[in-house]
Design a protein around this nucleic acid. Structure first.
Length: 798
DNA sequence: AATGGTCAGCTG
DNA sequence: AGCTGACCATTC
């Protein structure tokens, strides 16, 4: 008997294991590991993934697989093994690990219908409800309050319940037509057609000289009625052909040639090329200052990989997946590139994925999830801006793309390049230890000097009577650039991208009734929305506390800056980039293009504009308040500040004109600001490593965060304490457990949250122990309303 | 997650 | 007896 082990699409602990199904003889040759199948599960049908297929001599009582959903496996053996590893590492459900590797379009959709069987008479109520139909959606019957009648109907055999499983992914097809007549015969037929068949004659005329050619129907201009007629007369045949939705339709790329590498670049790329040729799994940390030509190294390494007939994956942070970036890959590798980013529709992502799966492309450029691209002969994985926190997924499975990349590279014996101007401390420490090979690009291409950086002490400005948000120095420089016709970029380093409202009289800030966070203000709909639970309210015009009408909108602050700037420099042309101006699709891109075309002198925005901005005439970068994120309750605050300031400074003077950077701050003495101004990564690393060592944080310790939530704060805190007590004896004395303490966001969706942080160096039993905790609460936690989640190597400690 | 089974408690 | 809602075991 042939048996398939299947993971079903039910993401709970209790079903988080394979279920065995018999394979019907007709599918015997078809069903393979890595395929999606529809299987009966309890009374319904669900999607499942085949993990393995085996043959057993004795037959046992198993339900049969209903049908396969794929013709070929969607996950190869390597990805199935990777899912295994991911499940263990992140303590997620197997089904989540499998699902995350596929485009969203391939997630199953379920629908439920009732249908008459015709084997027994319908009840009068059902007869009126169905009104002659054979089938009706379950919801419709439910809304009509007929569920008891449906039950009866199923019992007496007059009704069936149908569980349908559909894959959302629809291949887009076009109708193709071809004339089956030889050229001579075609003319004959046209002549012999009746006089009134004008359209049909016209239609057949289009096939003249196109003997044996398939034409897309929509391009021939033949209407579907006419097509039907000539197909029926068997002059023409038709077929459906799959087409890809093309996200880059209508854009052309002028191919470019590899640039000549500088000596420094050459020195950095050599070890990479060597490992590509050896086919050795070696991670590289490419530490290159901004403008040092990292991308060209990526491109030439990929060329080498393609020449060996292998494939390459390039990960970039979502925000820098701008056309500016992807165009460089398209130009060099043309149609061999697939691009995966959140701007694509579900269907477009599905199509790009299929191109990868069918090996029609050799290079993938994409955000985090592109690390799962279903290639089978990977020769190189690149992670650009490797320090970016967006590489860590914050929902299950909570994986870090860097870890997945290194894991896959091990399997394929290929190098990984982690590139950054400001590597994460974790990666740099690994490079210091020799786990990664460090490659350094310490010069900008063509020896363009790094911009000069001035730190302005805003306390000093205030003392001298300047109450504006621009220091005199920065203001003079902005004015100077406008006069010279050069461009400036101003950053407002705000902690969030969101805005809120506040009463100016009593200081009241609307908070979500379910969560302990302030509501986000959405200008276009004049609404307040909770970022955590989705609760919505209309924004008040009067303060609910003191009835004052002085309600102020605190945006990201960019609007206020713009107003003040226009007051001081009325002639300045400003482009503002924030949540309000980039809300619509493609707006981000359009604004950048305008700026690139020199339609404005000043680009003003939050950190969202820091990435990948590369225009020749930017000669001034101003950071209005460098320290806003320095004071966040996060042990990475200094690192993030340093990274951001360094990145931002790198936007200036990348081309012929030299650049200048002005950093305004209230804490000029802070090392992350000082050292960012000096562009001195090494010193920052040393200093920050000391603080991390003292605090017992990464990279000296690993972290695991346990969050417990319950409707009652007391229950949550007591249970968190219990968990700590249970875990402690399982760990070595070297492990440190902090807490339990209330989470920084102490309530979400009316549930109080308590957390404990485990710091450890080597705890082989930790994964197992935490899994037991999760299993324990899956069993009994449901009835008592407790929820427990675990994040291994967390980035967000809220 | 969703379903069907079991059982206490209520109606009439 | 017949029905409803709560709980809970089961899903190859």
């Amino acid at each position: 008997m042939n048996i398939a082990s299947v993971i079903v699409d039910v993401a709970v602990r209790q079903t988080d294991r394979p279920f065995d199904y018999s394979i019907p003889d007709m599918w015997r040759e078809v069903i393979q590991p890595g395929m999606r199948v529809i299987v009966p599960f309890g009374p319904r049908h669900v999607q499942g993934f085949v993990l393995s297929v085996k043959e057993e001599p004795e037959s046992r009582k198993l339900k049969p697989i209903v049908e396969p959903m794929d013709i070929v496996p969607v996950l190869n053996e390597e990805l199935l093994m990777l899912a295994d590893w991911l499940t263990k590492e992140s303590l997620c459900f197997k089904i989540s690990a499998l699902q995350v590797m596929l485009p969203a379009a391939m997630k199953a959709k379920y629908s439920k219908h009732i249908r008459t069987t015709g084997e027994a008479p319908l009840s009068p109520q059902m007869q009126t409800f169905l009104n002659g139909r054979e089938e009706a959606p379950w919801e419709e019957a439910s809304e009509a309050g007929l569920l008891p009648d449906v039950r009866k109907g199923v019992k007496d055999g007059s009704l069936d319940v149908i569980y349908a499983v559909r894959s959302k992914g629809r291949k887009k097809t076009v109708r193709m037509v071809k004339c089956v007549l030889p050229e001579a015969k075609l003319q004959e037929v046209i002549q012999s057609m009746p006089k009134n068949a004008i359209k049909q004659k016209e239609a057949l005329q289009t096939f003249c000289g196109k003997e044996g050619e398939w034409l897309p129907l929509h391009e021939t201009g033949i209407s579907s009625a006419v097509a039907r007629a000539i197909i029926q007369k068997e002059y023409v045949t038709e077929k459906q052909e799959e087409v890809y939705r093309d996200p880059l339709a209508g854009r052309t790329f002028t191919p470019d040639q590899p640039l000549l590498l500088t000596d420094i670049q050459q020195k950095a790329i050599n070890p990479i090329l060597e490992k590509i040729h050896e086919a050795a799994a070696q991670p590289f940390l490419l530490h290159g200052v901004t403008g040092s030509g990292k991308t060209e190294i990526y491109l030439q390494s990929i060329s080498e990989v393609l020449a060996k007939g292998k494939e390459a994956i390039v990960l970039v942070p979502e925000i820098s997946l701008t056309p500016q970036m992807t165009d460089r890959f398209k130009k060099r590798f043309g149609s061999e590139v697939a691009v995966l980013h959140s701007g694509l529709s579900t269907g477009e992502k599905y199509d790009e994925w299929r191109k990868i799966s069918r090996k029609e492309v050799k290079v993938v450029v994409g955000a985090r999830s592109a690390v799962f691209a279903p290639f089978e002969n990977i020769g190189l994985i690149i992670i650009d801006e490797e320090h970016e926190t967006s590489y860590k997924q914050e929902e299950n499975p909570r994986y870090h793309a860097r870890d997945v990349a290194i894991r896959r590279a091990q399997f394929y014996s290929c190098p990984v390049i982690l590139g950054s101007a400001t590597p994460s401390l974790e990666s740099y420490a690994r490079a210091q230890k020799g786990v990664y090979t460090l490659l350094t690009l310490d010069q900008r291409v063509n020896d363009r000097p790094l911009p000069t950086v001035d730190i302005i002490d805003m306390r000093e400005e205030l003392r001298e009577g300047n109450r504006s948000m621009f220091s005199r120095d920065l203001f003079e420089k902005i004015k100077d650039r406008i006069e010279k016709g050069e461009q400036a970029v101003l950053f407002l380093n705000k902690r969030g991208y969101s805005s809120f409202i506040m009463c100016r009289d009593c200081g009241f800030v609307p908070e979500c009734p379910n969560c302990d966070v302030s509501m986000t203000y959405h200008r276009h709909r004049h609404q307040l929305k909770c970022h955590y639970c989705g609760h919505e309210d209309t924004a008040p015009d009067k303060c609910p506390e003191c009835q004052s009408e002085h309600i102020r909108h605190f945006g990201t602050g960019t609007q206020k800056v713009e107003e003040e700037l226009l007051k001081l420099l009325p002639e300045a042309r400003i482009i503002r980039m924030d949540v309000d101006t980039t809300g619509t699709k493609g707006a981000h891109e359009r604004l950048l293009k305008q700026f690139g075309n020199k339609e404005a002198d000043i680009l003003l925005g939050t950190q969202m504009i820091a990435k990948g901005l590369d225009f020749p005439d930017i000669t001034l970068v101003g950071v209005l308040s460098a320290d806003t994120m320095l004071h966040l309750p996060d042990f990475r605050a200094s690192e993030k500040t340093f990274q951001l300031l360094t990145q931002v400074s790198g936007r200036a003077g990348r081309h012929q004109l030299p650049g200048e950077v002005v950093i305004q701050t209230y804490t000029p003495e802070h090392y992350s600001i000082q050292l960012a101004a000096d562009q001195h990564y090494g010193a920052f690393y040393e200093q920050e490593m000391m603080t991390r060592k003292m605090g017992g944080y990464p990279p000296f310790y690993y972290l695991a965060l346990i969050t417990v939530s319950h409707e009652e704060a007391i229950v949550a805190s007591a249970e968190a304490a219990k968990i700590v007590a249970n875990i402690k004896p399982e760990l070595s004395p070297a492990a440190v457990i902090l807490g339990p303490v209330a989470s920084p966001i102490s309530r979400i969706n009316n549930r109080y949250r308590w957390q404990c942080l485990i710091k450890y160096k080597r705890e082989p039993k930790l994964g197992e122990t935490l899994k037991h905790v999760l299993e324990h609460y899956a069993k009994q936690g449901k009835s008592n309303g407790l929820m427990v989640s675990v994040d291994i190597h967390p980035y967000v400690l809220m």
